[in-house]
Amino acid sequence: MRKNHLGSVGALAFILIVGALGNFLSPYDTGLLTQMLIYGVFAMSLDVLHGYTGMPSLGHAAYFGLGAYVSAICSLKLGWPFGMAAPAGIVAAAVAAALFHLLALRTSKSYYLMITLAFSQVLWSVAVSWTELTGGDNGLPGVRRPNLGSWFPWTFASTHNYFYFVLAIFVVSALALYVFVKSPFGYALRGIRENEMRMRALGYNVWAYKYVASIVSASFAAVAGEMYMYLNSFVSPSSLSVTVSAQVLMMILVGAAGTLFGPVLGAGVFVILQYVLSTYTDRWLFVIGLIYVGIALYAPQGALVFIRDKFFAPKRGSAS
């Protein structure tokens, strides 16, 4: 259908433009662009829970940081190559989500928000206090960028090369999540968001859907966390902090919950805002907080939706 073609063309154009930008920008700006893509993956992963399933998490940094830490520890302390350390981080986050949600799925809505916050705080305090393993407050510096082996012609030591590596992971993640939210499973998640009781009465095992969704979401958050860790060659407890959890939630709300592109745009806006504001003031988080309050008051569905409804004819959704 025409609309689908428009979507594919738009996505392709987006990738090409971003890819081309990486070629022209200075290393510093390329680093910012890389950050946007990483946060884009992170925000999309949370949106699977928040936007599609209606499970608002205030602890998504737990998986972001856990992926980063496990990958860094495997690489630094165990000397594992990238090809093993990277999957290890993702598996660790998935297992953590699987165990945690045995407990967490007894709650919903604001109680789920509280318990996810508590979970991420527990991981944060472990990272701070288990100094032998995590380096405590100093974190773990010196993780080298991925090296895919001698057969692979590029190293990712340079910012530009790493940018293209991240872009590739971003595209793969976005495609995977796109299929995920458009799948029968993804439709069931929307149904759960809209009306859990009806879903159960229809014959859906709501618990199993939420469980799988939370594991998928955690895995992609870990992918983002690892890319972020390799970008900086460094991981510290702040990657597990509530600030990070709140920031990624904000990116979704700025964009539009329940879409995939909205959170990516929100991530981009967030990184730019952070960059611009922090050149003027150290209190940039305060300003971002004010912007958030504004959005919550005047465009609770997300700034993107607000702009679309305000300036473009509202579109009605479609199924196929």
């Binding site: 299929v179 799948s183 029968p184 499973f185 439709y187 069931a188 859906y204």
Partner: peptide, 14 residues
């Protein structure tokens, strides 16, 4: 879809 065999499929578009 609730009772269709495909209801738990997440690797293919609906």
């Amino acid at each position: 879809q609730a009772l269709a065999p495909s209801h738990f499929v997440f690797w293919r578009r609906l």
